[in-house]
Design a protein around this nucleic acid. Structure first.
Lengths: 231, 231
DNA sequence: ATGACTTTGTGAACGCTTGCACAAAGTCGC
DNA sequence: GCGACTTTGTGCAAGCGTTCACAAAGTCAT
């Protein structure tokens, strides 16, 4: 019942970030009828090195068989338990714009440990309408007569995000996934993960520029430093 | 013209990931009419420590004034240049489902260094329709008669993502932002960033479970399990 | 049963990232 | 002009994460 990791000590944050990768690869293998897999193969399907995979799994306990590999089903169950996916976490999406609707329509929630139990917006035109089988409510209604929610997903415009986050915390939500650009300041104990399109693109742009500069810098004007460093 | 960092050595990856945060905070300050800011204040608005902010900025060069702080406009310009945002990178979105449309409608692209120049789908019903002022084309048409694109955003269902990525790389795209779950395997030199809703939620679930277990483990029953598991 | 082979699990080394302490360098009041 | 004060920039140490090398522990053919 209690995850192995609580006995073996805590799981490093970097490992936690990769467990979902492994779990996804494992469920894919399971669907293909594969019952056993070696760390080398599972690692390449997850995009990591096999040594890293093994060390990550070692934080959960020893569920592999030396000389053979891992039982797909068993390992998937262990990771799912570690991630707390044996139960269904109730999720609320706040902000029924394009993105909020896209997420509400996304089917990958249920069956993976999450269920959308409420949709929220502040536009009177939108409140009361039915989206994906759920009636959109206001935040106030969610607080008073809505279902209990554990995870809040914020898909509002940036200016509203902080106020929404504050209200969600006020009704007991401790885990937030924020799609609005900007940094939320919240009390300790609240877990926020930000997903920001602009940030991701800008990181790509940085590397893209590096590629271009690396090429164009081949013609000389500043070569003195470079050539010394190489040759 | 050439960013300062090319002379001062390379910028750490962790720093690159935070530069967009600083840039966003700075543009916000600029809009409010603030012209100068100290590292302490800028750091708290970005959600990092001031020492970290200063070290990050030191990789770009010295643009602060001791005793005063940073010139908002100048620093923003420096970061923008470092990230390669002085030009407009042409972006294609592949997959005109809910998420693809949401991204196409998102206004935060232009003015921040990116411009959507093409929308792609493979559904004959969708190809030819106009979304956000752009006519949806096929990948084949993009390759032959489409505009040049530098960054590809993949919002297709998971099974199609790998094939789409391969085709994008074939027409010269070297930077991909993948919203489809799963790991893309691509040649060296291609930069992929994955954004996965399920992964983010599962990381939140992990911490949420930790919180709950930390409370429920206060009552004793589990210590026995320890001895059993070990012996 | 046994030896060759495969694969896991892990201690140790390495590199990257963060945080600290402090010197350097400026402003501001007088 | 000058001293007190503020804030930046950076060498250094601690912590975290990744990779390497290898022993431990199993399978499989014979």
């Amino acid at each position: 019942m209690v995850p192995e990791s609580l006995r073996r000590g805590c799981v490093p944050e970097a490992t936690v970030g990769r467990l979902p990768l492994y779990l996804r690869a494992l469920t894919g293998l399971h669907d293909q009828g594969v019952t056993s897999i070696a760390s080398e193969e599972l690692a390449s399907r997850s995009g990591v090195r096999s040594t890293q995979l093994r060390k990550d799994l070692s934080h959960l306990g020893s569920y592999g068989v030396r000389g053979v590999g891992y039982d797909v089903e068993l390992l998937a169950a262990q990771i799912a338990q570690e991630l707390g996916l044996t139960q269904q976490w109730p999720v609320v999406i706040v902000g029924m714009g394009n993105l909020g609707r896209a997420l509400a329509a996304y089917g990958g929630f249920s069956g993976r440990g999450f269920r959308i139990v409420a949709l929220v917006d502040d536009d009177p035109e939108v409140v009361g309408t039915v989206v994906e089988g759920l009636t959109v409510t206001t935040l106030a209604d969610l607080a008073t007569k809505g279902p209990t929610v554990t995870i809040g997903v914020i898909t509002t415009p940036a200016p509203a995000a902080q106020a929404v986050a504050d209200e969600l915390v006020a009704i007991g939500v401790r885990s937030l996934l924020n799609f609005a650009p900007g940094h939320l300041v919240l009390p300790d104990g609240v877990d926020v993960r930000g997903v920001d399109l602009a940030t991701e693109l800008q990181i790509l742009a940085f590397h893209e520029q590096r590629r271009l500069l690396a090429i164009s810098t081949h013609d000389p004007l500043s070569p003195a430093a470079d050539t010394e460093a190489i040759g």
